[in-house]
């Protein structure tokens, strides 16, 4: 009898039972999802990014379908950190898999306050800094400017013991430089990538489609760009990478693992097939069996020519 391959991986010292998790903002844990599969089967769970204070989000239209993808300008609506800690975090905690808490700050002080607040709950295993949304006062995401990235990551890392994941924006000259900067500032892992900035125009109204004018592009359309981002960062940094961007099943997920991701996240495909993450876990297991590997860890980064 063939032994089932070991799917477990480790991100910043935290064991994940398997390498598949949701991407922040694209999957909720609630009773609506009860008839699909249990989130306790996931490699990790994560919340939609929260800010310290409640925010309404952007005016509609917030989403627009594009070839092989979608634009979104949701604007991260949230009820604030208090509501999250009381209403949502305990539900994530009791599922079983490690809990990643995704946060964002509008100011440096907010990043620090929110990080400390989340750590003080004792309910998070990892902290993901969503550095890639354009909410800084000057409109530039935290992770598109090396000095800013360095400042915010090192500030958070110096205040909390929780391992910190830096979620990077691909809208930069060279994402490997940003990966190195985040690592240098003390990040324990990277999430790559957030969406690409884009827009669509309604030719009848002759105006941008989205209420926010621009939005972030996700889905299979960005997958080759995301695989390249992970591949190039893997050559540059030693910390583990969570790869994402257009994963629609096991084949795409395995591409990311071979490129150097230690785990993968599924975003918009959860909207199309709510079983995508479960099918991805099963498909990775089948692939490892067929290819004769005993652990998923053996294939991480295998696409690199270096020995």
């Amino acid at each position: 009898m063939r032994v089932s391959p070991d799917l477990s991986v480790e991100i910043a010292g935290v064991p994940f039972p398997n390498p598949v998790m949701p991407a922040s903002g694209a999957y909720e844990v609630d009773e609506i999802h009860d008839n699909f599969f249990s989130p306790s089967e996931l490699g990790a769970v994560i919340n939609k990014t929260i800010f310290l204070h409640p925010r309404p989000g952007n005016p509609p239209p917030r989403i627009w379908e594009t070839p092989c993808g979608m634009l979104n300008a949701i604007g991260i609506p949230c009820d604030g950190a208090e509501a999250f800690i009381w209403d949502k975090l305990p539900n994530l905690r009791k599922l079983g898999p490690p809990v990643v808490v995704s946060i964002a700050g509008e100011t440096m002080e907010e990043w620090i306050e929110l990080s400390e607040l989340i750590e003080s709950t004792g309910m998070a295993d990892l902290l993901e800094l969503n550095l890639s949304c354009p909410n800084l006062s000057d409109g530039i995401p935290w992770s598109t400017e090396e000095k800013t990235l360095e400042r915010v990551v090192s500030a958070v890392v110096s205040r909390v013991k929780l391992p910190v994941i830096a979620k990077l924006s691909p809208v930069v000259t060279d994402i490997a430089d940003m990966a190195r900067t985040a690592e240098g500032a003390g990040a324990s892992a990277l999430s790559m990538i957030n969406t690409y900035k884009g827009m669509a125009i309604d030719i009848k109204r002759k105006r941008p489609v989205l209420g926010n004018v621009t939005g972030g592009l996700s889905g299979p359309a960005i997958r080759p760009l995301a695989v390249w981002a992970v591949y190039s960062a893997y050559e540059t940094v030693k910390i583990p990478i969570i790869g994402m961007g257009g994963i629609d099943g096991p084949t795409a997920a395995i591409e990311f693992l071979l490129a150097g991701a230690s785990a993968v996240a599924v975003g918009m495909y959860n909207f199309i097939d709510p079983f995508t993450m479960k099918k991805t876990i099963e498909g990775i297991r089948t692939y490892l069996l067929e290819e004769g590997y005993s652990s998923v860890r053996e294939i991480i980064g295998m696409a690199h020519t270096r020995a």
Partner: peptide
């Protein structure tokens, strides 16, 4: 406009 129909995407505001 709906992405998911079940509260995941926050698109249908």
């Amino acid at each position: 406009y709906m992405g998911c129909g079940m509260g995941d995407c926050h698109g249908c505001a």
